[in-house]
Write a protein that binds this DNA or RNA. Sequence first.
DNA 1: AGCGTTTTGTAAAACGTTCTCTACGGCGAG
DNA 2: CTCGCCGTAGAGAACGTTTTACAAAACGCT
Lengths: 348, 348
Amino acid sequence: MDRAGTPKNRRTTITDVARHAGVSTAAVSKVMRNAYGVSPAMQEKVRAAIAELGYRPHAAARGMRGRTYTIGVLLDNVRNAFFADILDGIRDELRQTEYTVLIGAAGFEPEEQAKTIRAMEDRQMDGLILIAPGTPRDEVLTTAASIPTVVIGHHDAADTHDSVVDADDIGAGLVVDHLVALGHRDIALVSAPGTRTNRWKRTPEIVLSDGYLRAMERHGLAERARVQHAAYSDDGGFEAGMTLLTADRPPTAVMTGADVAALGIYRAAHELGLRIPDDLSLVGYNNTALAALAPVQLTSVDQAGHTMGSSAARMLVERVESRRDRAMRTTMTPRLVVRGSTAAPRVR
Amino acid sequence: MDRAGTPKNRRTTITDVARHAGVSTAAVSKVMRNAYGVSPAMQEKVRAAIAELGYRPHAAARGMRGRTYTIGVLLDNVRNAFFADILDGIRDELRQTEYTVLIGAAGFEPEEQAKTIRAMEDRQMDGLILIAPGTPRDEVLTTAASIPTVVIGHHDAADTHDSVVDADDIGAGLVVDHLVALGHRDIALVSAPGTRTNRWKRTPEIVLSDGYLRAMERHGLAERARVQHAAYSDDGGFEAGMTLLTADRPPTAVMTGADVAALGIYRAAHELGLRIPDDLSLVGYNNTALAALAPVQLTSVDQAGHTMGSSAARMLVERVESRRDRAMRTTMTPRLVVRGSTAAPRVR
DNA sequence: AGCGTTTTGTAAAACGTTCTCTACGGCGAG
DNA sequence: CTCGCCGTAGAGAACGTTTTACAAAACGCT
């Protein structure tokens, strides 16, 4: 019986471990972080005590002085299956380490995203992975100045943060080449509007559009190029599809910047009585599970989300553990995955 | 010039604010938490100083003593669109508050999930929302004893944590009734295997199966009931579909516990040359965006994920702010959404 | 044996909050 | 005019780590 009343089920702290092992807290701390300057005998003793007491360091307390062993991932929404691939990559890379990954799904509002980034900063996270952030570029640079950061998606280079990008321009080229080879000439692109206010000059959408336009030009189809802006969602795709397909001279093929938008276009085509791929060829982007789904069979561009995620995680940890001090960028090469949604156009 | 060298870009702390406003840190702390015992004049002064200095409390430091204003959400994987609905609900409910939501996507391994829960505990989160945790029940109860917790999905009642569930048995009944009304008699269920080792007695899968079996019984079809276990994924559904549809007397209708599994069955049917709904009626569960997709048009059961999420968040905050000390449970009523994947069976 | 150097371990000071006391004024009641 | 009370403010002790600075011990050379 504790005379001071119930001892409560207080957490076992580093002090408990130290006392139990008959050493100082500093020693325990060193063992936990396997820092330099601790003898094998000490290791042994302390580890035993830790195991015996089931000690777990208090992350909040750690955050006060040193690291917090937490990696934050910012994304806008969790519905984009491509992000799931990236997350899996991050998780697989970090599984064997002692870092914990926490995800902030901040929505599309720049202000909400900024709030989430700040929250991660305040929680003293060791490193941040930002997936295509909609936050103003300056804010990201400010953050990156104080926390190791990897930006996924945006092509804008910076010397304060690392980057992982897909060569979206090449991806667009692959698609256009494929469609042209099938005989298409009226090829439209449906892409998210490049947000301009926030000072990112090379968002994935912008790079994709550029690649598309250059490829069309290369095939002498510059004046037939048509870019339709739409949100990357089922409804967004539907509206864009309706606009394009009810125009005076509708395209015979449509490529999109996201699989889910392609499915919206599918719906629009369906509604207008157009069959795919007979009346309309359709191409997605990201090669998510959606594209492979049985009833869909969408031709798409694979950009290896899993690898992007694991690269980002690896790069970030290098920085966090200061094994590297220069910014770097990894570029993935996209690959075309042909499925049933593309075919030669009908002769008219 | 600071004589002690560069002052670094040190965070502004509560001490800075206190000094700048000419008050004590305790006063600032009280204002931040709008606690009792602070005069309007003090309020004014301090708020001004906070604004002027752009002060943000250091969450890690907060975690040492009091709350951390962080809510943790545990889920197995981010691919299940139903979880996205729940997350949106949580986010919308908490948007106007000062709580930050951080998500741990822990994978399906119970051990990984447990690790994530512990990580959230160590980070001193204020409350936890666990979406159908695969962790042993005891561990969840232990956690719930020290942190306010809401469990979504599992029907097992407990007096330590709150629960939000869908009446999955009723949902199953709705589907069976619908299919029987169309004329089906051989109706199979594809469901995730009820994990038994971890001591949850009433997982969603188990409740769903029970509801299915009881409904079949009610229609005098007990001996035709057939439950096939499968992982809730495209591939899992495919395999289950193959098994069922190549059996001696294949079902004319299949219902599943998740939309994504239904799509796998769709693929299996496709491969076997069966058309939907002509040769096979198919029903999903959760009414995710997947079900509504144009080429799919899957009949499904809606369980209002958004509402489940916001309820969970509201209940959790009540507990965190100790406005309630009794455990409670919210049960949602499911609704059948009929689309194109169900029809009368072909006469043989 | 003596001396410098390295290794190993510890005491104690941070870190930025919250929270428990205590002190202080002002004010109404006696 | 004094006494008690109430409401507000502040001092200072936690909270559980990491880290710095230093002492002690061990080691390697002459």
